[in-house]
Structure formats: structure tokens, C-alpha cells
Amino acid sequence: MSRNPDPSLVIRPARSTHPAEQLGIDRRRFLAASGGALGALLLAACDSQGPESAKGILKFAEEKNEIVERALLSHSSMDVPRKSAKIAGERFPSYFVSRHVPVWDEAARGAWRLEVGGMVAKPLQLSLADLGSLPRTGYRLDHFCVEGWTAVAVRTGVRLSDLARLAGVDPHARYVDFQSFDDDYHESWDIESAMHPQTLIVYAQDGRYLNAAWGAPARVYSPTKLGYKNTKYLTKIMFMPERNGGYWSDRGYEWYGGV
């Protein structure tokens, strides 16, 4: 406590030394030093990725976050877009990593087939017509992009859990890798998210077959994953015992990418 018994009654201060002077620092130097330190701190922070030594901590946090995200994942929590939300339609962004819109070259590579393989009893080779003949599931769904935007589209296709049953997936498979013909784009998922009822192998958007910009002939789509996890231009669905990274996951984005 101060030397004065009732500080609220003190009107005129008894002493006049600046706190810095009490510490034996010149007032002007004190101001210059604190200003300089603050400036250096701000400069270091502005638009930087932060110190290199923080990488380990960030990686550690991502691993712990994955545990939380996996615990939050539930097969009964469904994405239901707001009633007022408009279908984005033609305004739905298109995105790919190749220089040009990836189009399956039938002349060079033969007819397109979706391969379901890896830890399965019965590997599948499905044409677009085969996919169309399987039980059809459609949802009006939100799309959550890692950038922060959302868009609503009607997605129609086959539940991946239906395909898994058809292929007889080994119960020890823990991961699924979705591969594409958009250069080397692929993303691997945890099997729990892949078996979510809203995880679809989509071949139609807003009631029409996918166009090239939106991932034709087929793509994976689940509202439980951020956009970049949902591989377009699918070629292979591989059930695996270990995770296999991914195009953006290997470039610094979190691997789990749950929503």
C-alpha cells in the first residue's frame, strides 16, 4: 500500500519522480528504448509467417486439433443450408491446379473409369453409366472453402459408404486417398469422414452432369470437409492403412480440414 492511509483523499502528489527515473533510467532514453522495441516488434510481425522455431509448435497444435476434430465428427450431424440461401449456379467458382481445365482425353487414355481399390475384397472399375445405375443420393449442400466463402449447390451421386460396401472394404482400412487426373492432385481422408452419409461421389451438380470446370466426370464431395479436401476429376479411390497426405496438405494446409 502507499504511505498515505487514505489515497483517495490525496489531491497533491508528494513526489514527482518518473517511474523510469526511479529505475535509474533517463526519461528520454526510456521513451526512445520503449518506442524502438515496440517498432521492432511490429515490423517483425507485419505480414510475416512468424519465427521459424514456431513451426514445431504449429505442427503440434495441428495434431492436437485433429484429435478434437475427429471427436467432433458425427455421422448424425448433417449439413442443411439455410432456407434463404440461393443456389450459386453459374456463379459457383471453378478451381483446378493444371494450367488448363482438365478434360479426360478418351482418345489417348481410353474410356474414363473410376477405380475403387486398395484394401478391398472386390476392386471396382466403374464407368459413368455404372455410377449412374447405383443407388442415387442427392442433397442441397453448403460448400465451405478454406478461403472463407460458401456456396450452395445440389450435389447428386453415390454415397461413398455404398461404394465401400459394394467393394467389400477391409475393416482395417483407416484412410482413403482420392486421386485425380488434375496433374498430381489428390487428398487423403480419415475413413470416418469418408463414410459420412453426406460424403458422395458426385457426377451431377444442380441437376446436370458435371461440366469440366466443376470436376467432370466425377468428384468426391462432403460438406464435412473443406473444399480443397474434395478432389475433383476423380480417377482412383484407394482404401489404405496409412494416410497419404495430399496436394494442399503437403503444402502447409491442415491435413484434416474438417468442417
Binding site: C46, D47, Q49, I57, V146, G252, Y253
Partner: peptide, 19 residues
């Protein structure tokens, strides 16, 4: 303005934010 931001790029900023 980029000078008011931290993380360098989207993934970097997200990793910092979620840690």
C-alpha cells in the same frame, strides 16, 4: 492492408490462428 496482417499466407495464418 497486408501490413496489418500476420501469417504470410492463408495456410500460415490459419495454422497460427488454430494454435
Amino acid at each position: 492492408p497486408a501490413s496489418l496482417t500476420f501469417g504470410g499466407w492463408l495456410a500460415g495464418a490459419r495454422n497460427w490462428h488454430f494454435a
